[in-house]
């Protein structure tokens, strides 16, 4: 009889012991959890993609509930999720600023000169280790399409040797921004049309030598901007998107077309994304 009773007592006893210990532990080690975290978590997409920069949706929900992240922190959820989250947090999400990624380089095969012919693996991160890439401009797009490979939303195409991003498809997941070894992909507001598509900090004369569409630092944009949205540092014009009113004076005046009107798309661009 003990053959049956002993194991039952031992196993049952141990199970009971651990159960009691765990329930005591859960009382002793209780951590106050903001109920809002749970609610926010339910409103998020639950994809755990990590695009917000937090470890999964739970991390993002905690940050939002504590006020460390904006209600619009979930980039892939877009307006709808932001509104739901804003309802829970009791704030207004009407002015959700949608950001999209933009490649800040227009130096395609015709416009920018190469310093050597790259024939290695088609990965920008590898090309960048070979004397900074094949372009003479050490700031420009390398054209191997690492961002294209990493984009899960069909928003990037390689056209004539440089990457271009379709802002309609972009969800601001930041993957291309992170993978680009040249750091030329940046987030800009969706509504901004005038964008300085050059990152070269070389002096104007050098830029002229290797690229026909680089910023040469003439500062015409700085002088002509009606809202003083432009600043100039390190031989490069920068635009403050908060001040920009999209008057497009800079686009007209820029002698090298380094400032681009992103609302106008090329035929090739339209064809690529139509298919």
């Amino acid at each position: 009889m003990t053959n049956i009773i002993n194991p039952v007592v031992v196993l049952g006893g141990l199970g009971l012991l651990f159960g009691v210990l765990l329930s005591i532990a859960s009382k002793v080690f209780v951590v106050e959890v903001d109920p809002k975290i749970e609610e926010v978590l339910n409103a998020l997409p639950g994809a755990n993609c990590g695009a917000c920069g937090y470890p999964g949706c739970a991390g993002c929900a905690a940050a939002i509930a504590q006020g460390k992240a904006p209600v619009t922190a979930c980039t892939i959820g877009g307006q709808k999720v932001a509104e739901n989250v804003a309802d829970i947090m009791g704030v207004n999400a009407a002015q959700m600023d949608r950001n999209v990624a933009v490649v800040l380089c227009q130096g395609d095969c015709e416009k920018a000169k190469d310093k050597y012919v790259y024939q290695g693996l088609q990965d920008c991160r590898i090309q960048a280790t070979l004397a900074g890439g094949q372009k003479e401009c050490s700031y420009g797009c390398l054209g191997c399409g690492s961002c294209f490979d990493v984009c899960e939303f069909n928003a990037i195409r390689m056209i004539n040797g440089i990457a271009v991003i379709n802002k309609e498809n972009c969800t601001a997941c930041n993957k291309c921004v992170e993978i680009c070894p040249k750091k030329i992909i940046e987030m800009v507001p969706y509504d901004s049309t005038a964008i300085v598509k050059c990152k070269s900090e070389d002096p104007g004369k050098l830029v002229r030598g290797y690229c026909s569409t680089g910023c040469i630092g003439c500062q015409i944009c700085v002088k002509n901007c009606p809202t003083e949205a432009f600043s100039f540092e390190n031989n490069l014009a920068r635009i403050n998107y908060d001040k920009c009113i999209n008057c497009l004076v800079c686009v007209e005046k820029c002698p090298t077309n380094a400032i681009d009107n992103s609302a106008i798309v090329s035929e090739e661009f339209a064809r690529e994304f139509a298919s």
Binding site: L11, F18, F29, V30
Partner: peptide, 21 residues
């Protein structure tokens, strides 16, 4: 079975304790 019981409870316990401490 006893060892599995111990490990499962232990992991739970460590998780609870770590969350607090």
């Amino acid at each position: 079975i006893v060892f599995i019981l111990v490990i499962a409870s232990l992991v739970q316990f460590v998780e609870l304790a770590l969350k607090k401490i």
